[in-house]
Simulated scan of single mutants.
Amino acid sequence: MDGEAIVVGAGVVGLTTAIRLAERGLRVRVRSRDPLAQTTSAVAGALWWPYRIEPAARVGDWSLASLRVYEELAAADPVATGVRLVPGVHADTVREGLGDWAEEVDGLRRLPPDEVPGPYGSGLAARLPLIDMPVHLAWLRGRLEAAGGVLERRAVTDLAEAGAAVVVNCAGLGARELVPDGGMRAVRGQLVLVENPGVDTWFTAASGTSSETTYFFPQPGRLILGGTAEEDAEDPAPDPATAAAIVARCARVRPEIARARVLGHRVGLRPVRDAGVRLEAEPGPAGGLLVHNYGHGGAGVTVAWGCADEVAELVTGR
C-alpha cells in the first residue's frame, strides 16, 4: 500500500513503527500529545529483556528481532544511538523459566550460587543491550526524519479523524480511552537516579508478580536504580519512602550505592494490557486500514523493532 500513514504515539514503539513504514516508502506523520522527553519510553531503564509482556507465543520472535537490531546499533555507533552491550546478572532467574527465545541469546549462562551478587541463590549472566533512552529517542527521531517522516505535537482524540489511508495506533496507555480498551491499565514504576560510584554492570532481581523490584543500570552520567511494579497505580509524583527503599535494596547488592548522591527521581506508567499486546489490522472507522500496536507493558523497548516489522508487513504486504 502506497500513500500516507499516521502513527499515533511517539514512544519507542511508535517511532520504530514509523521508521519501518517510512523506509518502505510511505509518507509518515507521527502525532503525539507529549514531547519525546515526556513519554513513558524516556523514563525507561532500559535493558533488553522480555519482562511483564504477553502473549508468550509471539513475544519471543518480536524480542529476538529487536535484539538483532540493537546488536547492530551497538556495533555501529553506541554514542549516537545510545545502545551499548553491557554485561550483568538476572538474579532469581533460571533458564527453565524462560521461553525458547533464550536459546538465541548469545552467552546467556547459569551462574554458580557463589557468583550471584547479593542475597540471591540463583542467576543468569548475559551481555545485553542497555539503551540510554533520551539519546536513543533523539536518534530515532533523526532516522525517521531522514526517511521523510514528520513528528507532530498534536493530540489525537478520535482514530476516525486521523485522516490518512493508514492509521497505526501506538498510543500505549492512551489506547484505554482512544480505542477504547478497558483492558489497559497502568503498572507504575519509580526510579532513582544517582551518581555512579563505579558500577559498570547491570543487575536485576525482578519477579513477575511482586510490586517491589531491585535493579540498577549504569547509563552515561548516572546510575539508574529501581524499582516498583505497582498495578493500577497512576500517581506521577515520586514517593520519598519508596525512593529510600529502592536505594536500600540496591545497596544490599552493591553497598557503595548507599553513599551515592541522588541526582533525581522518575516515575513511568507501563502500559499493560490484560490480554497481552494487541497487534492486528482491521478496517479503519473512516475507511482505509487501522493497525493496533499497543499494550507492551514493561517491554516496549525489548519488542519494538519486531513489532514494527510486523506492522510494516500488515500495511505493505512485504
Rank of each mutant, 00 (worst) to 15 (best):
M1S: 14
E4G: 00
A5C: 01
I6S: 12
I6N: 05
G9C: 04
G9A: 01
A10I: 06
G11T: 01
V13G: 01
T16D: 05
I19A: 03
I19N: 05
R20C: 13
R20A: 14
R20N: 11
A22E: 02
A22R: 03
L26M: 04
R29F: 03
R33C: 00
Q38L: 14
T40I: 03
S41A: 14
S41Y: 03
A42F: 06
A42V: 05
V43L: 01
A44H: 04
A44V: 02
A44Q: 03
G45Q: 01
G45P: 03
W48L: 05
W48I: 03
G60I: 06
D61L: 11
W62A: 01
S63D: 13
A65C: 07
S66Y: 08
R68D: 15
Y70M: 08
Y70N: 08
E72G: 13
A76G: 04
D77G: 03
P78L: 13
A80Q: 13
T81C: 04
V83F: 07
L85C: 08
P87T: 15
P87S: 14
G88H: 03
V89G: 05
A91M: 07
T93W: 10
T93Y: 12
V94F: 08
R95W: 14
A102F: 07
L108H: 12
R109F: 12
P112R: 11
P113V: 04
D114V: 12
D114H: 15
P119K: 06
S122L: 06
A125E: 15
R127D: 09
I131A: 02
D132I: 04
M133C: 04
V135A: 05
V135E: 05
L140Q: 04
R143A: 08
L144E: 09
E145N: 00
A147R: 02
G148P: 01
G149P: 00
E152W: 00
E152C: 11
A165I: 02
V167M: 07
V168F: 05
G174M: 01
A175K: 00
A175I: 00
R176P: 04
E177T: 07
V179N: 00
V179Y: 00
G182P: 11
A186M: 02
L191K: 05
V192H: 11
V194R: 01
N196D: 15
G198Q: 13
V199E: 13
W202P: 07
S210V: 13
E212C: 00
E212Q: 12
F216V: 12
F216D: 08
P220Y: 02
G221S: 10
I224K: 04
G226K: 06
G227N: 05
A229W: 02
E231R: 10
D232H: 13
A233T: 03
D235H: 01
D235W: 07
D235Q: 02
P238Q: 10
T242D: 03
A244N: 12
A245E: 15
A245R: 15
I246K: 09
V247I: 15
R249Y: 09
V253G: 05
R254I: 08
P255S: 12
P255V: 14
R261G: 14
G264P: 08
R266D: 06
G268T: 01
P271M: 11
R273K: 13
D274V: 14
G276S: 14
G276C: 09
G276N: 11
E282G: 12
E282D: 07
E282Q: 12
P283S: 11
G284N: 10
L289E: 05
H292R: 02
N293A: 14
Y294I: 02
H296A: 10
G298Q: 06
V311C: 08
E313K: 07
V315T: 09
